[in-house]
Amino acid sequence: MLTKRIIPCLDIKDGRTVKGINFENIRDAGDPIELGALYAAQGADELVFLDITATNERRKTLSALVTEIARHVNIPFTVGGGIASVEDVSVLLQSGADKISVNTSAFKNPGLVDELSRQFGSQCIVLAIDTRFEGDDWYVYLNGGRVKTEVKAYDWAKEAVERGAGEILLTSMNNDGTKQGFALDITGKLAQNLNVPVIASGGAGTMEHFVDVFQTAQADAALAASIFHYKEIEIPTLKNYLYQQNINMRF
């Protein structure tokens, strides 16, 4: 039986791991390769690396880093952050990434999703959405959560899946950094209505939050960063706990 997945997320800046609290107040949490291999050894099911470097050198540094990650990490990993072209994706996949995630660039040019899935296959194209609940619904935000759009998260996710996105990585900005739990309503709406896996992100604070996102929202995978980086919850403990709650886990 297919298991639910636990995915630590490593934000990368200039080759180092960082984690933004509410997308701000960045703190250094170590070397991405070492940390990635450690998580893999502890039983993480996948890893996500989000590059937030904004310099001109970033593309070259990132592909070199991806090669080193692929060399040392024996589980699948996704690379995201500022990926905007077929060429970017091709370089990263050839460097050893298993999947790439696109966000703002795909929203601005939805045809990119079609092009990427046609060329590389849906299975390696993850659509990342940052979303915030405002008034009546969840809206898509761009540029790392700085730019609001008038498009609803569900509508964009549905369109992207039709265009060939193979997975959705949904981050709730309301929940991110709060440690008060995942956004169960919007995560559930996507997970139960789209026929691709949905990765829930933002808000994990306790092991119970993972139970909720898997059992209530029916997310396929859950992503978290700071609780793992600062060892507030250890992956083996979490997976054991979830297994005891009848959630299928890999050991």
Partner: peptide, 11 residues
Amino acid sequence: NLLKIPQIGWN
């Protein structure tokens, strides 16, 4: 929508 395709993950 019962079965997500592709199957992605650990089985």
